[in-house]
Amino acid sequence: MPPVSRNSRLSLSSIREEEDAESAEAKLVMRKLNSVLYRGVERYLTYDAFLVPRNTLHRAAHDVLRQCSDRPHGLHSALVELYLSDGHSSKRLAQMVADPRQEVKTVIKLTLHQDHASDPTTLHLQSSYTMERHCLQ
C-alpha cells in the first residue's frame, strides 16, 4: 500500500480497492499452493492425508507476493518450487508458474517443514517454512 501524505490525492476507497486486489491475488496464490502441495504429496509420498496449520499457506502466499513485488513482471515471471524437508533432507514436490507465457525471471524456493507427529498415515507440517528467492536476470 502506498504511503499517504498530506498532498496526496489518494482516497480511502482507492486504498481499500488496492488492498482488496492484493488480498484476492494472495487468495489465488494460496489456493494454487494448496493444490500443488496436494498433488505433490499424492504423487511422491505415501501418506493418506496431510495437515497444514491454518495460516501457513496464507502467510506463504503473502510472502511470495512480497518477494515478487519488486521484480520485472512481478508474480507473472516467477516460478515457485515447493519442497518438503524432514529435517535431514529436502524433497521437491511441485512447482507453480503464474503465467507460463512469461519468461521466468525469479525462482522462489518454498520449503515446508515436516512435523514428526506420531500418526504414520498423515503428514503433519509445521507452521514455519523457509523461503529463498533467486533472481535470474
Score class of each variant (00 low, 15 high):
37 L>K: 00
43 R>E: 00
46 T>Q: 05
12 L>Q: 12
8 S>F: 13
28 L>V: 15
33 L>A: 06
29 V>A: 05
40 G>E: 02
28 L>A: 06
31 R>H: 14
26 A>N: 01
13 S>Y: 06
34 N>A: 12
26 A>G: 14
46 T>I: 08
6 R>H: 12
7 N>V: 07
27 K>G: 14
41 V>D: 02
6 R>M: 10
20 D>I: 04
21 A>S: 10
4 V>Q: 06
37 L>I: 11
43 R>Y: 01
36 V>R: 01
23 S>D: 14
2 P>S: 05
3 P>V: 13
51 L>Q: 13
13 S>E: 15
10 L>Y: 09
35 S>T: 09
30 M>W: 07
48 D>I: 04
43 R>D: 06
37 L>M: 15
3 P>F: 08
31 R>P: 02
10 L>C: 11
41 V>M: 05
35 S>Y: 13
16 R>I: 13
29 V>N: 02
12 L>S: 08
36 V>P: 04
46 T>P: 03
42 E>K: 05
20 D>Y: 07
49 A>R: 11
24 A>I: 07
51 L>M: 10
9 R>K: 12
18 E>D: 12
33 L>H: 01
45 L>Q: 03
34 N>P: 00
17 E>L: 12
8 S>Y: 09
4 V>Y: 03
11 S>I: 05
27 K>I: 15
3 P>K: 01
33 L>Q: 01
50 F>E: 05
42 E>N: 04
29 V>F: 02
23 S>Y: 03
19 E>T: 03
9 R>L: 07
47 Y>M: 04
18 E>I: 08
25 E>S: 10
16 R>G: 08
7 N>L: 05
12 L>E: 11
10 L>N: 03
46 T>D: 09
37 L>E: 04
4 V>N: 00
9 R>P: 04
36 V>H: 04
4 V>A: 11
3 P>Q: 04
28 L>P: 00
23 S>N: 14
48 D>Y: 01
45 L>K: 08
5 S>Q: 11
33 L>E: 00
15 I>D: 04
32 K>D: 15
44 Y>M: 08
25 E>T: 08
23 S>L: 11
10 L>D: 11
16 R>V: 12
10 L>P: 00
13 S>N: 14
37 L>D: 01
42 E>H: 01
14 S>G: 00
14 S>D: 14
9 R>T: 05
10 L>K: 09
34 N>D: 15
41 V>T: 06
48 D>M: 01
26 A>S: 14
1 M>W: 01
39 R>F: 13
1 M>V: 11
20 D>K: 02
1 M>H: 08
34 N>G: 10
